[in-house]
Computed example of a mutant assay.
Amino acid sequence: MVQPYKQRQPGSREQRRADERAAAKQKGAEPIKAATLATPNGHQHSEAFCLMWYACACGHRERIWNSRDGVTPFGFVCPSCKEPKLQHVDWREDSYAPNHQPSSGQRVWVDLTRERARTIAQRTIDQVAKSQQVPAHDFERIVDTVFNNGTAPDLVIWGYVEAS
Rank of each mutant, 00 (worst) to 15 (best):
W53E: 14
P79F: 04
P135V: 00
F76H: 13
N41R: 10
V156W: 00
Y160Q: 11
C50H: 06
V71Q: 14
C58H: 01
N66E: 09
P102F: 00
T119R: 12
I64T: 05
E47C: 14
A48E: 03
C56W: 05
V110Y: 07
A48V: 00
H88G: 04
Q133A: 11
L86A: 01
P102C: 01
D126N: 14
Q132A: 11
V143S: 09
S103Y: 07
H88A: 05
T145I: 13
A152E: 07
W65M: 00
F76V: 08
A121F: 03
E115H: 06
P79R: 04
Q133V: 11
I142V: 04
V161F: 06
L112Q: 10
I142P: 02
N41Y: 09
A55H: 07
S104C: 12
I142Y: 10
V77D: 13
R123G: 13
S131G: 10
R107T: 01
G150H: 01
V156H: 03
E140Y: 06
G42I: 11
N148T: 07
Q87A: 14
D90M: 08
R123L: 13
R114V: 01
K85E: 11
P73Q: 03
R107I: 00
G75W: 06
Q122D: 12
Q127I: 13
S46G: 15
N66M: 04
S46K: 15
T145R: 14
Q44L: 14
Q133C: 12
V134A: 06
R123H: 09
D126Y: 07
G105S: 03
T113V: 02
S131W: 09
R123E: 13
R123F: 08
V108H: 01
H60C: 03
G70D: 03
M52C: 08
I157S: 11
G70N: 05
D69S: 08
D138W: 12
V146T: 03
P102Q: 00
D90F: 07
D111M: 11
L86Q: 02
S104V: 14
T119Q: 14
R92L: 15
C58V: 01
C81W: 02
V89D: 03
I157M: 12
N99D: 15
I125T: 04
K130N: 11
E140A: 05
W91K: 13
V71D: 13
D90C: 10
R63H: 09
T119S: 13
F49M: 12
E62V: 10
W91Y: 15
T151F: 09
A55R: 11
A48W: 02
Y160E: 14
Y96F: 06
R92C: 15
R141H: 10
E115I: 02
Q101G: 02
Y54N: 03
C58Y: 03
F74I: 13
K130Y: 13
I125F: 06
P98S: 00
V89H: 02
E62D: 09
E93T: 09
S95A: 10
D154S: 09
R63G: 02
